[in-house]
Design a protein around this nucleic acid. Structure first.
Lengths: 193, 193
DNA sequence: ACAAATTTAGAACAATTGTTCTAAATTTGT
DNA sequence: ACAAATTTAGAACAATTGTTCTAAATTTGT
């Protein structure tokens, strides 16, 4: 692992632990035992570090949504795969989810990528639900418009569960994965057969 | 309106417009035409300004949830009242909703108040749903546990719609109130009769 | 009307922060 | 083995920021 990769992994660790408000490049450099000058030799601007991390998340997410080629899986199985996969990302890159709005206004490239991702994902999910509705595992009589809105709602719940948990769940010691799983299941609950 | 109130209203305006990352007390003072020294005479610390604004939101929210004493209203009517009331607050104090996680870790008092509010509100909503289930306007066979989880989901959707809209909807020119309304309706849709 | 209290402006302070610069150390390619 | 390229540390810079301090201006109470 070269210095550049070390900076990324250390920055990720520190941002996840302390948030983005108080963390400085000096702190990152100090905690990993290199000079601030050296850090800025590898990443000229702080945004470059964060954007790099975001791109790792983006790549991992796009890899994940390619996996289940709706062959043979039941809807429940597919849901479980999605929950596990997305939770792993939320957990690994938690600071991005918890500071998403701020990051989007600070680094416009992040907002653009996210919008692109959402748009792409929206169509996929709707057609997936229709497929499983035909297969008798998803409520059938839902109008297309409502299905689209359900997908939008799903994005809010799934992308901001992390923010809600940070404020409500974390100090109550609730198991995060279990809580996330329940939250997603709750969103699907009235739509499943 | 005395200086203290002016500071609050100007700070709210500026935070809503620019977010909390880039705004400084100097900027607030300058935009309202007073000196920075004067501003800090009224609010010793920046947090004091933000916490004061949060308490205004809190007070307005608590006032709102007292209003509909479930007498005579249909569930649909009550929902409409809730949507209008909560949207007005989300709109007026948008920077708080959009930067909620960061504010909670910066100013612990905000997190505490929010947790208290959620806890109090959770029980109210569950009993409201049961009441309307008995009145035949809400799905009846939902287990209590699922009802509680639905309420949790509702908080995520309602409190973080604003964050999602800031990233996805705002630049697409979607009407915010309409979008919020649709989002909340979508959450209720499968539960209504 | 005038002494006391409050408010205000502006300078000043102290700390921080991202970033750049320079020279030394290290690595790489041949 | 050695010249060239890369990496590194640490000092230095420039700008910012929250906050305090001081003295003047204004308001308040009697």
């Amino acid at each position: 692992m070269n210095t550049k990769e070390k900076i990324i992994s250390e920055a990720l660790k520190i941002y996840n632990r302390d948030g983005i408000r108080t963390v400085t490049t000096r702190q990152i450099a100090q905690e990993m035992g290199i000079s601030a000058g050296n850090l800025h030799y590898h990443f000229k601007h702080t945004e470059d570090i964060i954007f790099h991390i975001f791109q790792l998340l983006e790549a991992a997410y796009e890899k994940m949504i390619l996996l289940p080629e709706k062959g043979g899986y039941s809807f429940q199985q597919l849901l479980e795969v999605f929950i596990e996969g997305s939770y792993a990302l939320i957990n690994k890159y938690s600071f991005i989810f918890e500071n998403f709005v701020e990051l989007c206004s600070w680094i416009p490239g992040i907002a653009e990528s996210y919008r692109h991702l959402v748009e792409q994902r929206e169509g996929q999910l709707v057609s997936l639900f229709i497929y499983y509705a035909d297969a008798g595992m998803f409520r059938r009589e839902i109008p297309l418009l409502n299905l689209k809105r359900f997908v939008r709602q799903l994005f809010i719940v799934s992308d901001f569960w992390s923010s809600s948990y940070a404020v409500l769940g974390r100090q109550q010691g609730i198991d995060p994965f279990d809580d996330y799983r329940q939250t997603i299941h709750t969103a699907f609950y009235p739509y499943l057969l």
